[in-house]
């Protein structure tokens, strides 16, 4: 089966994909989760990821690319190891989400969708992440941080830099 074939994914992820495609009435239903999980491992959706996912699902590569380009969390080039996503939508904006974004830009020396020179951090201004009542809020990769101040933001970045940050995958 697919796991015995040549794969660009780790054995764990390849096995997970083998199972995932069996859960739905149609294999193609696994496409969006597969792309996201592949990105978690590879760092971004490379040509090789597209090719293997297409093959696993019996799709054409351009079908996969068409779906890939629709979803805002999927990216085709690497982000930093820790992708800092600052919400500036209405509830966060009212509680200084833009101040947090500016603080991150200055502190990291990068702008929206840029990566630091050491590859450790990237920064993104994002739309509502569903933490409105605990604004201003951010996500670092998949982990939420809320009720932020510039001081708390510094602490979070320091923790990640020192390898002490949360890492939900």
């Amino acid at each position: 089966m697919a796991t015995e074939k040549k794969t660009i994914f780790s054995p764990e992820l390849a096995a997970r994909f083998d199972k995932l495609v069996t859960l739905y009435p149609m294999r193609r239903s696994a496409l969006v989760p597969m792309l996201l999980y592949a990105q978690d491992e590879v760092g971004y959706i490379s040509k090789e990821v597209v090719a293997e996912v297409a093959e696993r699902l019996g799709l054409r590569e351009n079908d996969v690319e068409s779906v890939l380009s629709y979803y805002s969390m999927l990216r085709t080039k690497p982000a930093g190891k820790y992708n800092v996503q600052v919400c500036t939508n209405i509830s966060c904006m009212l509680r200084d989400g833009y101040g947090i974004l500016e603080h991150c830009k200055k502190r990291l020396g990068i702008d929206h969708k840029e990566v630091t020179a050491d590859g450790l951090f990237s920064l993104e201004e994002v739309e509502c992440i569903g933490a409105c009542c605990w604004a201003p809020a951010i996500q670092v990769n998949y982990d939420f941080y809320d009720e932020l101040t510039p001081e708390k933001m510094d602490q979070i970045l320091d923790d990640y830099k020192a390898g002490r940050g949360k890492e939900t995958v």
Binding site: L23, Y24, M26, R28, S29, A30, L31, V32, P33, L35, L36, L57, S66, V67, Y70, Y71, S72, M73, L74, E127, C128
Partner: peptide
């Protein structure tokens, strides 16, 4: 079966949600 999206407000609309679950835009 649990399913994850990948970032799209529009998918909260019920017919778009079905499209997404079927592996489409």
């Amino acid at each position: 079966v649990t399913q994850t999206g990948a970032g799209a407000y529009e998918v909260g609309e019920e017919s778009a949600l079905m499209e997404s679950l079927e592996g489409k835009r």
